[in-house]
């Protein structure tokens, strides 16, 4: 099963894509993905129910979040109200160590994204202040990152033994599915996604 693990809809302040249009696009362009995860900036969208769209287009549509930490942006999968009570998702400088600790405690998982990008990625912070224990996975392929930024992510992963995911980081419709993550088995919900990520049995793929 192939999922784009990093996408934004109009629920994000800089997202311009409607979820329905993502679905239409995937089917019209016959993209080789089975679904996507909406990782809205600094929030978790408890309100939207995308199941009718998922059924109509036969796609898996899951929800996560992208939070901001002292080591750059981080995708969080398996978000619950309890996790949101423990972490202020609206903060733009959450300590990464705390995000890792709280996600672990609340059956979620944290994945630093676009690590090769300046300021909002992890690489530069690691160079300055060293690694943060507890990171197991980073985003290896990001649809919005430039070649050398993805290369920096690969180097970081190699040096530290991190597993890698792929995500388009789509903010507009036509960017969905540029990068994704291939899982050997089915993923049918947020809990199942966390379990699949924790198994470390997946691979990042790109069509950039």
């Amino acid at each position: 099963m192939i999922l784009d693990l990093h996408a934004h809809s109009i629920k994000s302040d800089d997202g311009r894509a409607k979820v329905e249009n993502y679905c239409q696009w995937i089917r019209r362009k016959e993209l080789p993905i089975d679904g996507f995860v909406l990782t809205e900036h600094r929030l978790f969208d408890f309100d939207s129910d995308y199941q009718p769209l998922a059924d109509e287009f036969d796609l898996c549509i899951l929800k996560g979040s992208e939070v901001e930490t002292d080591y750059g942006h981080v995708l969080v999968f398996g978000v619950s109200q309890e996790l949101m009570d423990a972490l202020d998702f609206t903060s733009i400088r959450l300590p990464l160590a705390r995000v890792l600790e709280e996600t672990e405690r609340h059956d979620a998982i944290a994945v630093p994204c676009h690590p090769g990008r300046t300021r909002v990625g992890m690489c530069a912070h690691v160079e300055e202040r060293g690694i943060v224990p507890g990171v197991r996975i980073i985003e290896l392929y990001n649809g919005g990152s430039r070649g050398r930024e993805d290369a920096a992510a690969h180097l970081l992963a190699e040096e530290n033994g991190y597993q890698g995911i792929g995500g388009s980081d789509a903010h507009i419709v036509s960017h969905i599915g540029r990068c994704a993550t291939r899982f050997p088995g089915p993923v049918d919900g947020e809990a199942s996604l966390v379990e699949a990520l924790r198994s470390l049995d997946f691979e990042a793929v790109t069509w950039k």
Partner: peptide, 23 residues
């Protein structure tokens, strides 16, 4: 990327890329 028949509005994604394909 979007067509609203009722309102007769169309949405278009636009991208300016360099020769390396970077947006």
């Amino acid at each position: 990327t979007d067509m609203d028949e009722e309102e007769q509005r169309i949405e278009i994604d636009l991208t300016l890329e360099n020769a390396e394909g970077e947006t």
